[in-house]
């Protein structure tokens, strides 16, 4: 739509072998908004998010991050040209990524994980990198765990370190790929709290989640994906109160069956 949208996707197609996972997705993620991608397993939501970070290469279509194409740019004749690795890395700099499996580096402390990009990419002096890393660990409530290794942290703590690691690089957009799906229910809350605080600060977020309660309360723009297409999207209130699409109604019912109706109220 507009060049100043945080992320724009046009006709994004992704195939894995003979299996078409994304079938021409158009999506706009607006600045300062929390966009939640929901949908059944295999609907392509994680793939779509990973395409936004160019961790998966989209087979067709153009994805722009803050106006700049990532991975492929449209050529004058309508075909696509692949951008050089340096350009991909440059565009990637404006996004921060949080993974389902945390993906902390096991040989570095919590502080080391957060400071790594500051040291290696931004080339900050050691002291300054550590101070800034510590500030971000404090922000996610883990200052006292700074010298712990990932193996010594709970899943929830690891995910908060991972969020701090992404935030330390000062991204414009944060991408979350099912950030609580590998956590026990009691550890999910601490991660969602950090994400809620981040949303309240006005961070642009694109979140793939199964946490319908989070999507309903924190999400502003809801995108429901089904079989590689956007089946339904809109403002959170409307989408959840009037899920007019049959697949969406069916999808929500599985949550309601589990007694989640309380989450959708209020």
């Amino acid at each position: 739509m507009t060049q100043d949208a945080a992320i724009t996707m046009r006709n994004v197609v992704k195939r894995f072998g003979g299996n078409t996972v994304l079938r021409g997705v158009d999506l706009d993620v607006r600045h300062g908004e929390v966009t939640c991608l929901i949908g059944p397993s295999g609907s392509g939501k994680s793939t779509l998010l990973r395409c936004a970070a160019f961790l998966e290469e989209h087979d067709d279509g153009i994805i722009r991050i803050g106006g700049a194409p990532i991975g492929y740019d449209a050529a004058a004749d309508g075909s696509r040209t692949r951008l050089p690795p340096g350009e991909i890395a440059r565009v990637r700099r404006s996004i921060g990524m949080v993974f389902q499996q945390f993906n902390l580096w096991p040989h570095m402390t919590a502080l080391g994980n957060v400071a790594e990009g500051l040291r290696q990419v931004l080339r900050l002096p050691k002291r300054e990198a550590q101070d800034r890393a510590m500030a971000h660990l404090t922000r996610v409530g883990l200052a006292e765990r700074a010298s712990f290794y990932p193996s010594q942290l709970s899943g929830g703590q690891q995910q908060r370190v991972a969020i701090a690691r992404a935030l330390a690089m000062d991204p414009k957009i944060m991408l979350f790929d099912e950030p609580t799906s590998s956590l026990d229910p009691e550890l999910t809350g601490e991660v969602l709290t950090v994400m809620r605080d981040l949303a309240a600060e006005g961070m642009t977020m694109l979140v793939v989640t199964h946490e319908i309660g989070f999507a309903a309360h924190v999400g502003q723009h809801i995108v429901f994906l089904d079989e590689g297409r956007i089946a339904l999207e809109g403002r959170a209130g409307e989408v959840f109160r009037k899920p007019w699409h049959p697949r969406m109604a069916q999808f929500l019912q599985t949550y309601l069956d589990r007694g989640a109706s309380v989450l959708l109220e209020g």
Binding site: R93, F99, N103, W105, H107, E116, G117
Partner: peptide
């Protein structure tokens, strides 16, 4: 070495050489 550890490094902005030196070789 888990693929995700390399992806996390790329997302933080490490280049190929840094990914090899700082992540792959130690792990």
């Amino acid at each position: 070495v888990p693929k995700g550890h390399v992806e996390a490094a790329l997302c933080v902005g490490l280049d190929r050489g840094q990914v090899i030196r700082r992540i792959l070789l130690p792990e």
